[in-house]
Amino acid sequence: MKVSELVEKLDLKVYSGQKGLDREITGGYVSDLLSDVMGNAQEGQLWITLQVHQNVIAIASLKDMAAVILVNNLEPQENTISHSNDENVPVLGTSLPTFEIAGKLFQILNS
């Protein structure tokens, strides 16, 4: 599934990195510890987190992740937005808490 399709299905907000919306999603990873994501996340996964600073983009880009979803209506910092546009890593947002958005994503990807 493409990031853009998921945006529609889950009614996600697109903050930045629009050029990356046609990336293919292979799975998801939930973590707010950056070294955990660095060490364990896989290429093509969608990263669900509450971290909003630009190092999230550095990691998502280095790991070739599909996109980042910020939970609980959290908004990305300004330099997160510019970095995400440079690297074409979409930063998405949801009003849902982590557990709920992860559950929905899991259901969609496994149906």
Binding site: D32, L33, L34, S35, D36, M38, G39, T49, Q51, H53, N55
Partner: peptide, 16 residues
């Protein structure tokens, strides 16, 4: 607070 400093850095380096 930024999500670093979880004590995973050096172990990650060793592993990789």
């Amino acid at each position: 607070e930024m999500g670093f400093g979880a004590g995973m850095g050096l172990p990650n380096i060793k592993k990789n």
